[in-house]
Design a protein around this nucleic acid. Structure first.
Lengths: 204, 204, 204, 204
DNA sequence: GATGAATGAGACTTCATTCAT
DNA sequence: GATGAATGAAGTCTCATTCAT
């Protein structure tokens, strides 16, 4: 076992700080110029570190992207959790959209980045991200949430809801600030039942 | 004077055919490997022409992308036109989504490609695409279409509709074939008025 | 099938010339500074071409080395052939050494280079050179040559001979010109039988 | 004044042990992957010390190589000494080869490494190794040894002997264990006089 | 028009070395 | 003494674009 001067804790903290700086710089640059449009040199400069140091934290430029994408998937998952406490479908939809919008405010760049990659199968494959599986699981959760709140035909309705959330998110991000989010959310919510009916049968 | 050879028309047709082959090759490759992931050499190879010839048809690799994006915007515009003949909001929405899905079937790759670039402002700027303006115009047209069909609060409702169309398109493309498009479209349409009420005031 | 302007033959000749220039530059530089000590930029400069062009002729810097090594193995094989016409062991040895020395005069750098790599198993493995096999075959040929010329115990004697040729080559190259090659060759040859005795048994 | 701590001797011994570990790690790695193919980090890891510590023992990576090469030259010199006690040329040759082979068994990797560098003049120059001079001295010693044992034309014969030793060493190392060293040595020795004749004149 | 050899800037990544702790 | 985070120069290779034929 080898020694460890300079205090191991301080060292770990130092590393964590640097890593975080790289990730934040990466969100900014990747989302603006694209992954390929961002050079490692630019990335290091934005993070205010030497190029070499970047590689002591990540195996490759791609690994930085991969870390970001994982974090983005967590964002989405968290959005869902917030809505789960609402008893009615309308409440569920409202909170879902509201917290999605809040998440976008906080992580707009990250979300833009992840959207940009959604449709590039080759790239996703290289990153080894379980996107397919993640989308499937999300659909499942939405279906169950609606079913529990008495929405019939929950499977199809979940698809409608999923599409709506994605569409609204897209529009919201695209408009960079002047989007009537509250009004749109309300208009969407009005289309979902405000009370929970007795369910006669199970979802499946 | 030389030049102006045997048959000017045949020559022009030939050029057009080559140009078309390049564009088709570009959709395939760009949508799979991304713009940066596709080399001009690969592009020329896929189009079965020499690299040099490609440059006699397009100023640059970027110009090829630009041409594709313009064509994609036309796709979307055409989708709208198809729906315009429907008298009720529900009919409008139904046809809008249906023809969107049809368009996706025909131009899935192109649409994927354009989606991938939607969120990269710097790239879009370089391509000098009037995306902002195009989205604004589309929103206008939707708003007017809904207003004309007696939908109150047409501005907000148009945003809901736009978001829905985008969301459904996204999901549809993502699922590569096993998406219950018809059922989803029906479920969406049910949320829109099937009859046109008298309008009391204009939209604007 | 695509066309081929600028005359296909001229094109091929052009390519061959360039390729040859690269190989010659590579011998010079690799043998002086080592493979790792030679940058691709330096290589291209010495060959008086652009870096990129080098890569249209060879897959990698390593591929250049590989091509050289193959050519070096041919050199050695040719040396053997020259000696095969001698009827006595002494004549065989004399010609073998003489033509080895001649070969070294012509391809000193290449031989130095290949010697430098002989003992780096990892590198050789990467180059996928059949060195092991080549050395085995050479030993076989020497054994048979000696046996045919009536040398008893030809297997061991072939090893002595092989070692001598290698050792003399090494010394010759190391001395850069002031090596009494003729005298050494004569002294070596004196140790081998000048007449061919009747063989009583086969070699093996 | 601080420093000069508890036990200066123990400290020095510790340093020496570390230095030795580095050198051993270096032989292993350099001989397998080459000098350039071995990173300082890998070297430190193999020696189980921190990178920084390595630099407190050696000025540079090159200095490590230099130390190894010097040690390799000592190996060769020692080989010669062992043979010096033999009265006849044949005995001298036999012991020379035998102890060369023994040395190779003990320091195969080191010898391989040094052989790999023999033909790279630029590299040798950087290491400031007196190779030229060392080879000259070795030749001198061989010449004298043969002359003293009554071999005429000792200068040329010494070259033959030197070449033989090098050639056999090369073959021996290349064959990684299945080389009939004893038989080859015997076959070589048979070519040298087993008795010492009166010398009529001096060598030079 | 059509070709592909040629160019050279710039991308990602590695690595010897330094130095604050 | 001992550590390993940090540096940035330099390496290999790719690629959009040009142009002689």
């Amino acid at each position: 076992m080898r020694g460890m001067p300079r205090n191991a804790d301080a060292n770990a903290a130092l590393r964590e700080k640097t890593r975080e700086r790289v990730l934040q710089a990466a969100v900014r640059l990747f989302s603006r110029h694209g992954f390929d449009g961002t050079s490692v040199r630019a990335l290091a400069q934005e993070a205010d570190i030497a190029v070499g140091l970047l590689y002591s934290h990540f195996d490759s430029k791609e690994a930085v992207l991969s870390a970001l994408m994982r974090s983005s998937m967590l964002d989405v998952a968290r959005t869902l959790e917030a809505a789960d406490r609402e008893p009615t479908a309308r409440g569920f939809v409202t909170v879902l959209l509201t917290s999605a919008v809040e998440m976008l405010d906080a992580h707009r760049d990250l979300w833009r980045l992840s959207q940009g990659l959604r449709h590039q199968p080759e790239v996703l494959a290289r990153l080894k991200l379980p996107l397919e599986q993640f989308l499937g699981a999300t659909h499942q959760r939405l279906t169950q949430a609606l079913a529990e709140r008495g929405v019939p035909d929950a499977d199809i309705e979940a698809r409608v809801l999923f599409a709506t959330v994605e569409g609204v998110s897209q529009q919201y991000v695209q408009h960079e600030g002047d989007y009537p989010a509250a009004a749109v959310i309300q208009a969407v919510a009005r289309r979902w039942p405000g009370v929970t009916r007795k369910r006669k049968a199970d979802t499946r």
